[in-house]
């Protein structure tokens, strides 16, 4: 059995050695996943909010669909995006395959439903409280979306974190559309997959510890913002 303690020590050693290769991989992971979350937020938040305040036929079906898409298997998304971006596919002209851009696109597809579904829940709850007052102000349902998003901003951080967690941890999509090319599209998860396939289990586990550390760091940073800015704004 592998020695967990030695993997943990390896992880710390890797971090403090300042290995530039490792840091390049860590930074690429962050770039890809944060970019994907930012883009997914720009799409998913208005979409989720519109679903929360909108009343149209088929709304229930759309809500179920978005909720179900939260469970999209990354490999399936990777395949879909590969088929789109392949030179034999409809978006081949973009020449995005095997670039970080392709990985971002795949993660956007994975993360957008998560952010949209959680946003819908947050905004629906907030709307239940605000809707009479906003109608009294003469704000229409659709015009209330920016207000609800802004006032729900701290709860929506949770949606962003959930999306980030999904993006930074997945390997199935990015390894297909990124190709795990050294120095170009190799991120934490694909490196872990590679080291596992080389049988370097202790190193793979150490990288896993570092990935967990990154996730904790990002969560803590956002959590800190949330705490310091909402300490007493809660009601």
């Amino acid at each position: 059995m592998q020695d967990f303690a030695s993997s943990f020590a390896t992880a710390l050693g890797l971090l403090f050695s300042g290995d530039p290769e490792l840091w390049a991989i860590v930074l690429l992971s962050l770039r890809v996943s944060l970019s994907a979350v930012a883009i997914a937020a720009l799409i998913g938040m208005p979409l989720g909010a519109a679903l929360a305040v909108g009343r149209f036929p088929g709304r229930g079906a759309v809500v179920i669909l978005v909720n179900s898409l939260m469970g999209l298997p990354p490999v399936v998304v990777g395949l879909l995006v590969y088929l789109l971006l392949s030179n034999a596919g409809p978006l081949g002209v973009l020449q995005l395959l095997y670039t970080p851009g392709a990985m971002i696109l795949a993660q956007v597809v994975l993360v957008t439903p998560i952010i949209a579904a959680l946003t819908r829940q947050v905004i629906e709850d907030l709307d239940a409280e605000y809707s009479e007052q906003l109608r009294s102000f003469g704000v229409s349902r659709i015009a209330s979306v920016p207000t609800l998003l802004w006032d729900g901003r701290y709860s929506l951080l949770t949606a962003l974190l959930a999306g980030f967690g999904r993006a930074v941890a997945e390997v199935g999509a990015v390894i297909i559309v990124g190709g795990n090319i050294n120095h170009v599209t190799r991120v934490m998860t694909t490196t872990i997959a590679l080291e596992t396939s080389k049988g370097n289990l202790a190193l793979a586990l150490a990288l896993g510890f570092i990935l967990i550390g990154i996730a904790i760091g990002v969560n803590a940073a956002l959590g800190l913002i949330k705490v310091t800015t909402t300490r007493s704004a809660y009601a």
Partner: peptide, 21 residues
């Protein structure tokens, strides 16, 4: 604070083509 965070994320998004490749 919130705007700063948003901008930081957007900035990272813009950077994705730089760096490694």
């Amino acid at each position: 604070t919130f705007l700063g965070l948003t901008l930081a994320i957007a900035g990272l998004a813009g950077l994705h083509t730089g760096g490694a490749e």
